[in-house]
Amino acid sequence: MTAAAADLLIDRPTMADGAALWRLAKDSKTLDLNSSYSYLLWCRDFAATSAVARDAEGEPVGFVTGYVRPDRPGTLLVWQVAVDAAQRGRGVAAALLDGLTARLAAERGVTAVETTITPGNTASERLFTSFAKRHGADLTREVLFPADLFPEGSHDPEVLYRIGPLTGAAR
C-alpha cells in the first residue's frame, strides 16, 4: 500500500459492500454503470479476485473488480476501478491494484493484467501505464471492441491494455 493510502484497509469485498460499490461506480461519472444487482453478485461470486479500500469506519471508499480469465488462468481481467472523490489523488487506485495483483500472484499464479479503457479516459490510462512501469512489465494496446459492436450506437471503442509479465517489482 502506498504511504498516501496507508490509513485505508484493503481487503476483499463482501455482499454487504455491493450497494457502496454501485454508488462509487455511479458517482465516478466515467464508468459504465451496471445494475445494483450485478454489484451484489460481483461481491459474492468474484470477491476473491476483487479488492475494496475501507476508511477508518470500515466504509468502502474505492474498489477494483476483476476476474481470472478462464482461458488464461494467469491473467487477471480488471473490470472496473473506482475511488470516492474525497479519496482521489492519494494513490488509492494504485494501492488497490498493487494489492490485488500481489494477492492473486501468490494465490493463483497471476502474471498478467488486462483491462479495457475508452480513449480519453486519462485517469485510467495513467493508472495502468504507471502500474506496468512499477511492475517492470510490457504494455500493449489494441482495440478489442470497436464502437460499432455496441448496440446503443453511442459507445466509444474499448481499447485492450495487456500488461505482463509482472516481475514483482512493486510486490
Rank of each mutant, 00 (worst) to 15 (best):
S124P: 03
R12Y: 12
L144C: 01
A93K: 00
R171Q: 15
T65D: 15
I163T: 06
V113I: 08
A123N: 06
T75N: 14
R141L: 00
R12W: 08
T140G: 01
A16L: 15
A147T: 01
G89A: 02
R72S: 10
A106T: 10
G66M: 07
P73H: 11
R134W: 01
W42P: 00
R54K: 11
A56W: 07
D11P: 05
L33R: 03
K133V: 09
S154K: 13
A147V: 01
D148A: 04
E142I: 00
A20H: 05
E114D: 12
A93N: 00
E59L: 09
C43E: 09
A25R: 02
A19G: 12
V61M: 13
A51D: 04
V110Q: 02
R103N: 06
I163S: 06
F63C: 13
A3T: 11
G120W: 06
T75K: 11
L21V: 08
M15N: 12
R171D: 11
G168E: 07
L33N: 05
S28H: 05
V61K: 03
S28T: 06
Y67A: 14
A147K: 01
G66A: 13
L139N: 00
D27C: 04
R134P: 00
L76M: 12
H135F: 03
E125H: 08
F131H: 01
A170Q: 07
K29N: 08
R72F: 15
W42R: 13
W42C: 10
A6S: 12
P165N: 14
A25C: 15
V83A: 00
T2M: 15
E57L: 15
V64C: 13
R23L: 13
